[in-house]
Write a protein that binds this DNA or RNA. Structure first.
Ligand code: SF4
Ligand code: SF4
Lengths: 138, 138
DNA sequence: CCCTAAAAAGACATATAAAGTCTTCTTAGG
DNA sequence: CCTAAGAAGACTTTATATGTCTTTTTAGGG
């Protein structure tokens, strides 16, 4: 359980690859897709999501492509994951306690909050800069 | 992401209910299902899984039913969850690094191990005894 | 102005997994 | 041998994951 989807995995690979590039260099989607071994059409969808929330900047037309929206040290893995997978929710009652009648007295409920905080805490400590370290090719 | 399935949620509810009963009392599946608001046929499947690994003991025929396999303070939430949901795997490379060519140099890989350990750590600290506290009726 | 290169958008298709049901079989007590 | 349970497995339905395809928009260059 608790498994990251392919989409999430691809998203991370893609943006980490971008983070390994020099800042302000525009990168073709096709180039990224090939480098990280992801179906280009699928990665396109993912980068569109990134673009909407500003995690990456996109440029259309000739000479277009993608670049990182912010400095890699200011983008956390948590942001990336939540951008494409949605919030970290170990159980639905965590985000919406009224979903479950039992939430008011349930002893399990707080455990899921603890799990959520734990996972978020780990992912929040990791930045794209660290993740890209060592994989910078030109 | 990271969401527990209904099956997992039901499993917890069911076994916690059982843990709230006096030890050595046999409990009907139908009674449990009604008490925790789960489709009886579905809960049956879940308890069969529990039974196979000894988390609960089952008795067939007239006067049959289920009872907890061990004392509730010796059963952790982690065991219950993993019994029905399988191991906690934030990403497939965690359980089988050879799945991914990149695992040898990937900087993301260790983060998922950290997440895994974190989640397991939380769930391992919680026992059925604590979860059942306060919900003992008869 | 037109042609081409690129991303954006949305409809579509397929595969897998989750969620639940149904039927038949086995076991045990009375 | 009849009835009350759980065991087992096939089956169905629904939702999600994993893509693909087509069309549109945007931008640069001749
Ligand atoms: S029973 Fe408890 S853990 Fe389960 S959904 Fe309700 S509040 Fe959450
Ligand atoms: S790229 Fe890294 S995180 Fe992703 S599957 Fe491979 S080893 Fe795991």
């Amino acid at each position: 359980m608790m498994e990251l989807t392919r989409k999430g995995e691809y998203a991370i690979r893609g943006i980490v690859h971008l983070a390994g590039k020099p800042l302000d260099s525009v990168c073709l989607l096709s180039e990224i897709a090939a480098a990280v071994d992801v179906p280009p059409t699928f990665l396109a969808k993912i980068f569109q999501q990134f673009s909407k929330i500003g995690l990456v900047k996109s440029f259309r037309g000739t000479g277009g492509g993608f670049m990182l929206g912010r400095a890699p040290e200011n983008i956390t893995l948590l942001e990336v994951v939540e951008a494409v997978e949605g919030p970290i929710i170990p159980n639905r009652c965590v985000i919406n306690p009224s979903d479950c009648d039992r939430s008011s007295y349930c002893n399990v409920h707080p455990v899921w909050k603890q799990v959520q905080d734990g996972v978020r805490g780990v992912l929040e400590q990791v930045t794209l800069k660290e993740l890209a370290a060592g994989s910078s090719k030109s």
